[in-house]
Design a protein around this nucleic acid. Structure first.
Length: 551
DNA sequence: CTTTTGGGCGCG
DNA sequence: AAAGCGCGCCCAAAAG
């Protein structure tokens, strides 16, 4: 398929409330086209749909084309996403992959971005603006060509391909948004406000005659010390070491305050005036593992323990919410990549791995495992693959109100590795490899790079990341493949919305009559994408159909 | 004055 | 061998 280089100028960032001002195209043969204030793009629609569209940050352009002109770009190459992949994820969440950066890196030219503003619909372009608009395009062919050479050299073409196929799904995701029950948010907010006032008052009384800003960790620590509570810091974990009524009030205040400041009082500002829905930003290569990040608002960290909260995200009338998530995906991946016999056997015979681990470390029969033992085993199962060690395990369990001594914790870890010897050797080998090369690849070929360092504690951090990132990133690959395939199947139906993605979870909104069919397709595609890598144990996606988002 | 950093905490 | 991985947002405090 031939390439077409594309860029647009708009009078603002939001595709629902802002307008396209110019659209610029550069063909492979070097021809340029500049369209000003187009009413429709019917003339070039086939061209846009039958070429690979190359651009920098093409998600932005795609959204305007899709919403304003009904054109869905399905074959794209994004120099921004490609650059993050080439950097081994080092450029995720950082500056350094802007068009300006790439023009300098691959073409040796310093780009002038001063004309970026001031594009208005209905107002003629100055010569400078015309030049600026086309100037962004002329470097793209060379950037792409040199990136592709790097991609081949690094052997990451299949991962880049996954990214480019997932991109149209991200456009679908951001344009879809999520329906939000604003009324209910207001109710929850006022209830919480009431509680917060009372809690703050009670704390102020306890700290009298001093006036303390309870939101300031420094002031708070001093105030607690004055009360004779010798806290070192004011984190929940530290506070919980001490038994005192003020601590209980404080912890409750923190919880309520967090809910208000981060969630209930903020959501209103994100309601889009055109759609009435919340359209968060999703960055498909936001984490160096290849995971998505989400912001404004961050839909990946909406409270789940405060169970009432997620029901504010409800299906529009006549629709259902379909939620699907991979079951224990990171543990299954650990089993697959380590090839641990006991891990594989347990998953293949449908055993509960946490219960199994508990029975091994406590040396009790499976059916005699207590709840506390299973909780400990669960923390160990998840934690050790992240590089958790004795102090971390103790700290972690204390927050679950389980007390473990140092010797006990040491024994738990020792027994864990004795039970799963291949997990032990896998984690050891991969951490050594990461620290030696400062680079790794996961089983999908995704490239993960670390900053080189001689600092011992930083090297240890690289070792811990080396244990976890190949696992975390493989899950990212699975879910991206799944969403790309689901996009091809469901988006053309025109009535289904892609509402959210949270690392191992996908969320859709579909007309009631189609909900079950959608649920089935989503489950199938997720499991199909997972099975590509989980060859030796089952991949399971659990799917639910409901009126609201829940967990 | 604005920007950056760090503690704290939400999620997977 | 080491004292748990990946993120974003709020607030206060420090730095520019």
């Amino acid at each position: 398929m031939p390439f077409l280089f594309l860029d647009i100028e708009t009078d603002g960032l939001d595709s629902y409330t802002c307008n396209l001002v110019t659209l610029q195209i550069l063909t492979q043969s070097g021809k340029t086209i500049l369209l000003k204030d187009p009413d429709n793009l019917d003339a070039i629609k086939p061209k846009l749909e039958n070429n690979v569209i190359v651009g920098h940050g093409i998600k932005f352009d795609s959204k305007f084309l899709k919403y304003r002109y009904g054109i869905t770009l399905k074959n794209v190459y994004d120099t921004y996403i490609a650059e993050i992949a080439i950097s081994g994820g080092l450029l995720a969440r950082r500056k350094g992959a802007s068009l300006k950066d790439l023009v300098f890196k691959y073409c040796g030219v310093t780009l002038d971005k001063s004309e970026q503003c001031g594009f208005k619909r209905g107002v003629d372009l100055t010569e400078e603006q015309k030049e600026y608009a086309l100037n962004d395009l002329v470097y793209l062919p060379q950037i792409m060509q040199r990136q592709r050479a790097m991609i081949d050299y690094l052997g990451i073409s299949s991962v880049v391909d996954t990214e480019m196929k997932a991109l149209p799904a991200v456009v679908w995701l951001e344009l879809s948004g999520v329906n939000t029950d604003v009324q209910k948010v207001a109710e929850i907010n006022s209830q919480l406000e009431e509680r917060r006032v009372k809690l703050a008052q009670s704390l102020a009384n306890s700290f009298k005659p001093h006036t303390v800003n309870i939101n300031s960790p420094v002031q708070l620590k001093d105030a607690l010390n004055r009360l004779g509570i010798p806290v070192d810091g004011t984190s929940a974990g530290e506070l919980m070491k001490y038994d005192h009524p003020v601590i209980d009030t404080l912890l409750e205040y923190r919880e309520v305050n967090t809910l208000i400041t981060k969630f209930t009082s903020r959501i209103q500002q994100f309601i889009n005036p055109v759609t009435g829905r919340v359209h968060s930003d999703f960055n498909q290569y936001g984490a160096k593992s290849g995971r998505f990040t989400s912001s404004n608002p961050n839909l990946q960290q909406q409270p789940s323990r405060f169970t009432e909260w997620r029901s504010i995200y409800k299906a529009a009338s006549g629709y259902k919410i379909i939620t699907a998530d991979y079951s224990q995906i990171e543990l299954r991946i650990l089993g697959q990549v380590s090839q641990d016999k006991e891990f594989l056997r347990a998953y293949n015979s449908g055993e509960d791995l946490h219960q199994l681990t508990a029975s091994k470390i406590y040396r009790v029969p499976l059916d005699q495992v207590t709840k506390v033992q299973r909780t400990v085993a669960k923390k160990v199962n998840f934690g050790l693959s992240y590089g958790l060690w004795v102090p971390g395990l103790i700290k972690n369990l204390r927050q679950a109100e389980i007390t473990l001594g140092t010797e006990e914790a040491e024994k738990v870890i020792k027994d864990y590795f004795k039970a799963y010897p291949s997990v032990k050797s896998y984690l050891w080998d991969i951490s050594e490899e990461g620290a030696k090369k400062f680079a790794l690849k996961n089983k999908a070929g995704r490239y993960i790079k670390f900053e080189r360092t001689l600092d011992k504690s930083k090297i240890n951090s690289v070792k811990r990341q080396s244990k976890n990132l190949p696992i975390q990133s493989l899950c990212a690959d699975m879910i991206k493949v799944a969403m790309a395939n689901i996009f091809l199947k469901l988006e053309p139906k025109g009535v289904i919305r892609f509402v959210n993605t949270i690392h191992d979870e996908l969320c859709f909104e579909a007309p009631e009559a189609m909900a079950e069919e959608v649920a089935q397709i989503v489950k199938e595609e997720m499991e199909k994408a997972g099975k590509v890598y989980l060859k030796d144990l089952p991949c399971v996606a659990e799917v639910t159909v409901a009126d609201c988002w829940s967990k």
